[in-house]
């Protein structure tokens, strides 16, 4: 892989802002364009930029294989867990309004939509980085 000092310096400056922007998009999903998928892909793309501008192993040390698998599973389990929480509260699967929190049902639903967005974001950011890193790793060997 070809890389130069210019690319590495720009990547080092850009990557934190990219990740911050991705997190901003995830948590602002309910009020502005964006959401878990879009923000998660942006955070994942920052790891891909790191892998392209430095090398695969430096991206691998930032988020290791085990961390990525854990994030992947955490996102999916969080979403399914919110659905099961509604079952426990006596409602239907994914019926957010039934969860007993000291708020108006509409606010509970809004909060759960935000949590689901965060769960999707965690899942997608791990998956996007994971797919690229493993495919590129296969090319190297």
């Amino acid at each position: 892989m070809m890389t130069t000092v210019v690319i590495q310096t720009i990547a080092r400056v850009v990557v934190p802002f990219l990740q911050l922007f991705g997190l901003y998009i995830i948590v602002h999903g309910p009020v502005s364009p964006g959401g878990g998928f879009q923000g998660g892909v942006i955070v994942g793309a920052s790891m891909i930029l790191l892998a392209l501008s430095y090398d695969l192993s430096s991206a691998e040390t930032k988020v290791s294989h085990k961390v990525r698998i854990a994030m992947d599973s955490t996102g999916a389990l969080l979403f399914a867990g919110i659905g099961l929480l509604c079952l426990l509260a006596g409602g239907v699967f994914l019926e957010y309004g039934i969860i007993p929190l000291p708020m108006v049902p509409a606010e509970v639903r809004g909060l759960m939509i935000l949590l689901v967005g965060v769960a999707i974001g965690i899942h997608i950011m791990a998956l996007a980085a994971s797919l690229f890193l493993h495919l590129a790793e296969e090319h190297d060997t």
């Binding site: 998928f37 997608i124 996007a128 797919l131 495919l135 296969e138 090319h139």
Partner: peptide, 17 residues
């Protein structure tokens, strides 16, 4: 659909490898 297309593409690429 976009995310499912992403998953499909990655799996197809792995099979190609």
């Amino acid at each position: 659909g976009i995310v499912v297309a992403l998953a499909l593409t990655s799996f197809a690429l792995v099979l190609t490898i």
